[in-house]
Design a protein around this nucleic acid. Structure first.
Lengths: 176, 176
DNA sequence: ATCCGTGCAAAGTCTTTGCAAATTA
DNA sequence: TAATTTGCAAAGACTTTGCACGGAT
């Protein structure tokens, strides 16, 4: 049941952003507002350059430098997470509303699969405790080949995938 | 039981490198040999520029471009792993002989703590299976504050660390 | 002898920064 | 009003590439 005052993730984000800015005497300007809009309209991962194009398409003219200056602020106030998916550009994704998740990256087709990150979170907690480390964040990525790419290969050259091995007890279920 | 012919991790790496090169008609040249030497002499994480300095200090004059061209080869043949620790440069570390491990990165002092990666590996396998993904590699980093940095802070401003909680008789139940 | 590799410097990519003018609280 | 922001373009940091010569098999 959604709250009356906060109608959406977008408003939650805006509230966080504005509060963050106000608290340190910074300003909520049209460019920043436009960037936030574009960011929240993006359900996928994106990068600075993509955001610039999005903004242009929306009719907002914001300088590239402004984007590069604003994105870190959005990370700091918790609206965005920076995730490094490729090797070059920094990728971002919304931090609000998204359940904790991490990524599998198919190195054949580039597809990014998000998976439930609760197990990872649990492990991280255990590990941090073991090493007396105060854990704040993490980055977990699994590289490999996705299901579709495997299936597109001739059988003889398919890699062994654990889940394709025959289970000891017949519990096999083909999924879509 | 160590083989007679392979006396060390270094030789193992060299063998892998040479075999990889030979298999595809590439050459084992002095610069590549020098780079391999420098790489294997490095027990820590390092980056391209650092390697260049190491080489200069050893008296080997290898061009920067050659380093940038050789490092990916060493990754491909399994001698090195590329690990992105900071935000900018690519870091490398030896892949042979090193037990599987991942990293905790202290954001206060920059210290890098390697931790046993077997639990992570197990989790990765489970997750890959669950998503029908053929997992080849992973990247797992935990960001936060290390023990030493925490201890150097006034008590009042120390963060809560799980392991610093009183390990008392009263076991708190999970508060979902 | 034939390719492959090397070095050098120039080109590339993504990101950051200096500065004057424009805005915001 | 005073301080922060913006835009632009130039600068920066790291990496890649073109070319002609030198080297490995």
């Amino acid at each position: 049941v959604p709250d009356r005052a906060i109608q959406s993730v977008k408003e939650l984000a805006e509230a966080a952003f504005r509060e963050y800015l106000r608290d340190r005497g910074l300003k909520y300007t049209p460019p920043r507002r436009a960037i936030l809009e574009a960011v929240m309209a993006n359900t996928e991962h994106f990068e600075a350059e993509q955001l610039l194009l999005d903004l242009r398409q929306r009719g907002d003219r914001v300088a590239r430098a402004t984007i590069y200056r604003t994105l870190p602020i959005l990370v700091n106030c918790g609206v965005l997470k920076a995730v490094r998916l490729g090797e070059k550009m920094v990728h971002y994704e919304q931090a609000f509303g998204a359940d904790p998740h991490d990524h599998m990256i198919c190195q054949r087709c580039g597809r990014i699969i998000e998976f439930d990150g609760r197990d990872v979170l649990r492990l991280r907690t255990v590990l941090a405790e073991r090493y007396h480390f105060h854990d704040i964040a993490h980055r977990f990525q699994i590289m490999g080949t996705c299901k579709k790419c495997i299936e597109s290969l001739p059988i003889a050259s398919r890699p062994f995938v654990a889940s394709s091995r025959k289970p000891s007890k017949e519990r096999r279920k083909s999924s879509g």
